[in-house]
Simulated assay, not measured.
Amino acid sequence: MTGPATPAITVYVDADACPVKDEVYRVAGRHGAHVVVVANAFLNVPREPWIERVIVSDKLDAADDWIAERAGPQAVVVTADVPLASRCVKAGASVLSPTGKAFTDSSVGMALATRDLMQSLREAGAVTGGPRPFSPKDRSAFLGALDRALVRLRRNAQGG
Score class of each variant (00 low, 15 high):
G109A: 13
D105P: 01
A68N: 05
G159M: 12
V38R: 08
A102C: 02
A126Y: 12
N40G: 11
D58T: 12
P98Y: 02
A5K: 06
V82S: 09
L121E: 07
L121G: 05
D58V: 08
V127K: 00
L150A: 03
R26F: 04
G100A: 07
D16P: 06
D61T: 10
A124G: 11
H31V: 04
K21W: 12
R26W: 07
Q74P: 00
R70P: 03
A91D: 06
P19N: 12
I51F: 10
M118Y: 05
S107K: 09
A113N: 02
G92V: 11
D138V: 00
V56F: 05
A15H: 14
R154S: 15
T6Y: 04
V38A: 07
K90C: 12
A39K: 03
N40M: 08
A111G: 08
L112M: 14
A62P: 03
G125A: 04
G160E: 11
H31S: 07
T128C: 05
V11Q: 14
G92T: 08
D14Y: 12
T10V: 13
A102K: 10
K90L: 15
F42L: 12
I9D: 05
G32V: 00
I67R: 10
Y25D: 03
I51A: 06
G130S: 07
V108P: 07
N44P: 00
Q158R: 15
L121Q: 09
A80K: 15
S106R: 04
V82H: 09
D65N: 13
G100Y: 06
D138K: 00
A71C: 02
T104K: 01
L43W: 11
A102S: 09
R87E: 13
R132H: 09
A17N: 11
T128R: 11
G160S: 10
A149T: 05
K137P: 01
P4E: 13
K137C: 02
A63R: 04
G92D: 09
A68E: 07
G72P: 02
C18T: 05
P136H: 01
S57C: 08
T10E: 08
E52S: 01
G109D: 15
F134V: 01
W50K: 03
R47I: 08
G32M: 02
S120R: 15
P4T: 09
V95Y: 13
D105H: 07
L112P: 01
V108C: 12
T104Q: 02
A5R: 06
E48P: 00
R148F: 03
A71S: 06
G29A: 06
R122T: 03
R139D: 03
V78C: 09
R70C: 06
E69A: 15
Q158E: 15
D138H: 02
A62D: 11
